[in-house]
Nucleic acid binder design. Structure first.
Lengths: 169, 169
DNA sequence: CCTACATTGTCAGTATGCTGTCAATCAAGT
DNA sequence: ACTTGATTGACAGCATACTGACAATGTAGG
């Protein structure tokens, strides 16, 4: 008896990791945007703001490594944040190529104000699970993301952020 | 002593569900595309092809419900699949608005041929985890996606696919 | 029949995400 | 100093994703 060729039905697709990861990301973004609607800020923009706050004077290339965010797309994200007056771009004195990123006062205020909404969003994503299951899921996912870090185009390089220190402007 | 306001550092972000879901999706797509490079097919295009094979003569709106895929974006996906000769669009006789979707012979062949690559990709996503942990992760994620189904713009409606039956062209 | 409402496909606009390319600039070795 | 190679920011092009709008068509009620 030959074994059935795998998918054929949608039910087989629904249980596959690729499908579940896409769906979960879709849901997570929807929840984030809904909770943070009044701030008109996306998950990616929020992550960028936090990273810039944590590492003032970081440049775009290092920022992309710190939030594992594609370098090409980051350009437009920065542009939008700058247009909204949340960040500033200043040329670096030590290297005519780089532009250093700083949070503006408005950006810092937004980060303070948006925090409760972000926390609510993060909580809502896991809400349907039992507390113990939430821990298990997050633990396994953190492991998996870490172990697969090198696979994506922009692996996370949290340490890269430190390279700009020691040459503060 | 007041409790510290939540994020402040990137480490706090790295452990949040929103970040992990985005990162995992990023990695999953990268693996899929890498394994299926020779077929020049994306995860979404693959899902659409499987759904059309399972439900020949489905229309675009129902297709979007079956793969939980945004209706607006689906238009361009269908266009690309049609341009590649993998599917056909035929006007429905019972309703001048709808266009029915069918797999072409080339589409069916691609689905047969791509299957090993897709299976390899799905396996690679979970590879770094112990087999027992893979089961736990998929189980919890399937639960969570199902319980959050209504949140996203396009909730999954697998049953919708059956509505087109009984009026075969 | 006619009107109010719903559905279908399409489109414009915005925002990620990826691949690949380019000029300007910098660094390192000769 | 000069050349080679790497880095930085920018961009073009493609492919998801979402919001909101629209015309054409269908349907159900009066």
């Amino acid at each position: 008896m030959p074994s059935k060729p795998t998918p054929l039905t949608m039910d087989a697709v629904y249980a596959k990791p690729g499908y579940l990861f896409r769906r979960m990301q879709q849901i997570a973004v929807a929840i984030f945007v809904e909770e943070c609607r009044t701030f008109d800020t996306t998950p990616v923009q929020y992550a960028a703001l936090v990273a810039i706050q944590t590492h003032p004077g970081i440049d775009a290339t290092r920022l992309s490594a710190v939030i594992a965010f594609d370098r090409s797309t980051l350009g437009s994200v920065i542009e939008r944040l700058e247009a909204k007056g949340l960040i500033e771009r200043k040329p670096a004195s030590h290297d005519k190529r780089v532009k250093l990123l700083y949070l503006t006062r408005a950006g810092a205020k937004l980060l303070r104000d948006i925090m409760p909404s972000v926390d609510r969003a993060q909580a809502r994503m896991l809400q349907p699970l039992k507390p113990a299951d939430r821990k298990v899921l997050m633990g396994l996912l953190a492991q998996l993301v870490d172990l697969n870090n090198e696979v994506s185009r922009v692996p996370l390089r949290a340490e890269d952020a430190l390279e700009h220190l020691g040459r503060a402007e």
